[in-house]
């Protein structure tokens, strides 16, 4: 009899875990909260992915297709785990969906519930939702995805745009001390896209550090050297309204020393990643540990980043911390292998 494995969350990590297991003949049940698969990249219509600017559809669309056509995968849309119990070395889970409740027994479980974007409205100094022309990187991702990039306030193309890094990250005041890892790279990627599509629009990036780690650094160099994106050192402490329907970034230029108040047509906040409400929810329901940053905690961050502290329950993707799609997909595969091994051992 084939093994039964439960995957919770259908983002890049969960999709890859599900398709890999399906390919080796494992019966997979995929429980997805939303009415569609693909996770955050799909929800916010990411169009081109860093690091190589390939169409998101190449990656996400491909994974969704494989999952939907996978002969061993049953997907529950708009669903959730309403009850979860240990049963010997196996697990009994109740899946609640539009078709009612269904309880099944699983040999092992993969949690891939991902992240939520930090909501910049929580940090009032950035005046998100107060001024139409202050948006964030996920909004911009969606605007570019829908080919609809204009100033929300007046429908005109902006003549200058400022990115503000580390919004909702590396800030005790909002409760997140960690670095969200992808926002720098997303920002330089988007800066390049803006300069490519709107060459008359000047792009500035306000930074404290630029953390385009590893080969993502190439995009940072490109943004400056090929697209004249200007970086300015200093975090923005306040966004106010300025003359002629502008928004004013108030900060300190720490390289020249001294305050500035520069007006821009548009501001893009590089909001970070959070564990969201789903991480504590999974922690409670499945009895697995939560870390001090609000993400799910691996048994050993270095040796087994894809294992929870509870045998038989595995972790993959951004639910254990901010990371790029490639890492999420890799972890999906690692968790699949481990979940399969556990299932076979306890057959």
């Amino acid at each position: 009899m084939a093994e039964n494995i439960l995957v919770i969350g259908g983002g890049p990590a969960g999709l890859n875990a599900a398709t890999m297991l399906s390919e080796i003949g494992v019966k997979v049940t995929l429980v997805e909260r939303d009415s569609f698969l693909g996770g955050n990249p799909k929800k916010f219509k990411y169009k081109f992915l860093f690091p190589d600017m390939q169409p998101a559809d190449n990656v996400i669309g491909e994974l969704i297709k494989k999952t939907e056509t996978g002969s061993n995968i049953k997907v529950y849309y708009s669903s959730e785990i309403s009850d979860f119990k240990e049963k010997g070395k196996k697990f009994d889970a109740t899946i609640k969906s539009a078709n009612g409740n269904e309880t099944k027994t699983f040999d092992s479980v993969i949690v891939s519930t991902g992240f939520e974007h930090f909501d910049p409205a929580r940090d009032a100094k950035y005046s998100y939702q107060l001024f139409d022309d202050v948006i964030d990187i996920k909004d911009l991702e969606r605007m570019m995805g829908e080919n609809n990039f204009v100033r929300p306030s007046n429908g005109q193309p902006p003549k200058n745009v400022a990115f503000i890094l580390c919004v909702g990250s590396r800030d005790r005041h909002v409760g997140n001390q960690y670095c969200s890892r992808v926002c720098c790279t997303v920002s330089v990627k988007q800066a390049i896209e803006l300069r490519e599509h709107f060459p008359d629009c000047e792009v500035y990036i306000f930074y404290m550090d630029i953390r385009t780690y590893g080969f993502f650094e190439d995009l940072y160099w490109q943004a400056m050297e090929e697209h004249d994106v200007q970086i300015v050192k200093g975090r923005i402490a306040e966004i106010t309204s300025g003359p002629d329907n502008t928004v004013v970034c108030k900060g300190e230029d720490t390289l020249l020393r001294g305050p500035f108040e520069i007006p821009f047509d548009m501001v893009v906040l590089a909001s970070g990643m959070e564990g969201g409400p789903q991480s504590p929810e999974m922690s409670k329901k499945l009895g697995i540990e939560l870390d001090e940053h609000g993400f799910l905690k691996p048994e050993n961050v270095t040796l087994s980043p894809f294992k929870s502290n509870r045998p038989g329950i595995f972790l993959a993707g951004a639910c254990t911390g901010p990371k790029a799609i490639s890492d999420s997909i890799t972890e999906g595969a690692a968790a699949a292998m481990n979940a399969y091994t556990y299932a076979v051992k306890n057959r």
């Binding site: 200058n160 000047e202 500035y204 004249d228 200007q230 106010t240 300025g242 003359p243 004013v248 500035f260 108040e261 520069i262 007006p263 821009f264």
Partner: peptide, 13 residues
């Protein structure tokens, strides 16, 4: 009224 500096001037660059 809040103080506002001039925009960055890229023509020089």
């Amino acid at each position: 009224l809040s103080r506002v500096d001039a925009e960055y001037d890229r023509s020089f660059f």
